[in-house]
């Protein structure tokens, strides 16, 4: 008896809004409607998933909920625009607030505020640089947004140089803006990347994987050769090792990691460590 009821409720959820909390880490599809926890609570647990979200109506405790990439507010509804896994990061104050976003597998980058990216300077015009970040539009970067830069003391940036920076403005239908300093005015690792080394592109999913706090791949790569490496959230990786040969090996390994299982990867690293 219990099984048919379960199936029925699942098929119901397919066409109606699901509570965001219940589908965390699960695959969501474009066009799906989601309910945020606060909406769920006002409706009571029995009615969770029954009514679509109303962001403006009857919010007792104002929770800060941020819709990240892959989610979009359409009127009073919250819609999924990409297929992938729903993720959530709780904010400091409350458990139900925080950021919701969809981790999807794609190559095209869409600028997101706060992302650290690698850009290529395409033009110098007046007091701003145009930087290609792989998005639909080049980002703008003020020459004052470098550490220690003043009107008189301009940074030495040429067309074609690589820039590691952070987005401060990334809105829909607007030119994104980058800076190479943090809020304290320090470079904090950002700025122009050296002239040597190799830049290559991987998928955004692989970058996220590599940037995860305890990524095995990076640890294993670090054991192979001494290297310098920069990851941009826009899918670009800059890597530099002592020789061209080593740089090429590192680039090829990182690229190939996406389609290898953990065992295959370990084998390859073991073989490389021998040679």
């Amino acid at each position: 008896m219990a099984e048919p009821a379960l199936v029925a409720s699942e098929s119901l959820a397919g066409c109606r809004a699901r509570a965001a909390r219940t589908v965390l880490g699960q695959v969501v599809l474009p066009g799906e409607e989601l309910l945020l926890p606060e909406q769920e609570e006002t409706d009571g647990p029995g009615f969770a998933g029954e009514r679509p979200l109303r962001l403006n109506a009857g919010i007792r405790t104002r929770l800060r909920v941020v819709c990240g990439p892959g989610l979009r507010r359409s009127g009073d509804r919250l819609l999924v625009t990409k297929c992938g896994r729903l993720r959530h990061k709780a904010s400091g104050c409350g458990s139900s607030g925080g950021i919701y976003w969809v981790d999807s597998q794609q190559k095209r980058y869409v600028p997101v505020k706060g992302d650290h990216v690698i850009g290529i300077v395409t033009a110098k015009s007046g007091d701003i640089f145009k930087v290609d970040v792989g998005g639909s539009e080049p980002a703008s970067l003020s020459y004052l947004a470098f550490e220690g830069a003043t009107k008189r003391n301009r940074p030495n940036v040429q067309v074609g140089d690589l820039i590691y920076g952070q987005f401060v403005v990334a809105n829909k239908d607007m030119e994104p803006e980058m800076v190479c300093i943090d809020s304290c005015g320090r470079a904090n690792g950002m700025g122009v990347i050296g002239q040597d080394g190799l830049l290559f592109k991987v998928t955004l999913g692989l970058i996220r994987k590599l940037l995860a706090p305890d990524c095995e791949i990076i640890q294993e790569v670090g054991k192979l050769y001494p290297l310098e490496i920069v990851f941009g959230m826009n899918g670009r990786i800059w890597v530099k090792a002592k020789t061209i040969q080593q740089t090429l090996i590192l680039a090829n390994i990182l690229e190939a990691c996406e389609h290898m299982t953990a065992d295959q990867r370990k084998q390859i690293f073991a073989r490389l460590a021998e040679s």
Partner: peptide, 22 residues
């Protein structure tokens, strides 16, 4: 959409690699 520009470092690296027959 515009073509992704080739950065100076890529160009330099490629030419150096070709010189090394790689």
């Amino acid at each position: 959409m515009k073509e992704t520009p080739l950065s100076n470092c890529e160009r330099r690296f490629l030419l150096r690699a070709i010189e090394e027959k790689k």
